[in-house]
Design a protein around this nucleic acid. Structure first.
Ligand code: SF4
Ligand code: SF4
Lengths: 144, 144
DNA sequence: ATTAAATACTACAAATAGGTGGCATTTTAT
DNA sequence: ATAAAATGCCACCTATTTGTAGTATTTAAT
């Protein structure tokens, strides 16, 4: 529901990169496309490299490419990695131990809604995003 | 998924107060029960008054009670009020305008999952919580 | 070789969120 | 009347997140 800006940036970067996986993306290019604050973007990119989503090449003509098949990168993974493990596994109400020593009225309802969302996020990968993007491109071409 | 601590505190306070609506709760009492940092809790309580969820009475024997029927207070309302309007209405990916000028692959899936969650949160009120709490109490008594 | 274009690293600055403490005011009990 | 127990208000402090800037390093083109 509410992701940190950093996580949103990460999703944005990786989603954008996923649309053309053959390309090497420089920080400067991504800055122009995504308008994420320049310096922060650079830090995020090295961060995403360290997390293993992408890898960098140094020097002129250097930049970033995916470090693994984008079929292997789900939205859930990205969010979880960026927000820190278990950010999505805690109680909605933020109670470490439940308020009345047994599940509150929200519990079942919330767990169900949340697990559905987690399923969705787990089952959707950057590859799905790429596919959808390309289909949309085609549709647009046809309608000219 | 990830609510601010402040919102979690608000949920915690109101949920706790909902278990016995006839009582006047002092900040000090709630502090002992909920272990929310004392000074911050006091600020939150006056905040919740301003938002109209509860109302305060001054002086000795003063404290806080609900300002309206708890049937009228949904979890969604609380979260939305505390997080600031529309915190739950923005794109998962945090894009202000979508990355490729048309809905991304996540859109339908995400909107569905989210609207389900919002429905759940909207349809569940503090009154539901109270009811569940009292049923659980009864069950415990019977099993002695 | 030199220069240009890229990332790596790092120390710092700014903004936001979370938390504290003190003093004023109100009400009730004695 | 006075003291005690409560909230209201406010200025400040601390921690975390977000953002900046500069220097060092690597690579490719010339
Ligand atoms: S029972 Fe309620 S408070 Fe406890 S973990 Fe479940 S949703 Fe959270
Ligand atoms: S289309 Fe995708 S990026 Fe746009 S609002 Fe929907 S989920 Fe967000």
């Amino acid at each position: 529901m509410i992701l940190s800006k950093t996580t949103e940036y990460a999703l944005s970067i990786l989603s954008y990169m996923a649309t053309r996986t053959d390309e090497v993306y420089s920080a400067e290019y991504l800055f122009n496309e995504l308008k994420i604050p320049r310096s922060y973007l650079r830090r995020l990119l090295t961060g995403l490299s360290k997390f293993g989503f992408i890898k960098s090449s140094l020097g002129r003509k250097g930049g970033f490419v995916f470090a693994k098949d984008i079929k292997e990168i789900s939205f859930y993974q990205i969010i979880n990695t960026m927000e820190g493990a278990d950010a999505m596994n805690t109680c909605l109400l933020g109670f470490s131990c439940c308020i009345v020593d047994h599940p509150c009225v929200m519990h079942d309802i919330w767990m169900e809604a949340r697990s559905k969302m987690i399923n969705t996020l787990s089952n959707t990968t950057l590859a799905d995003l790429k596919e959808k993007y390309q289909q949309d491109l085609l549709k647009n071409l046809r309608s000219i």
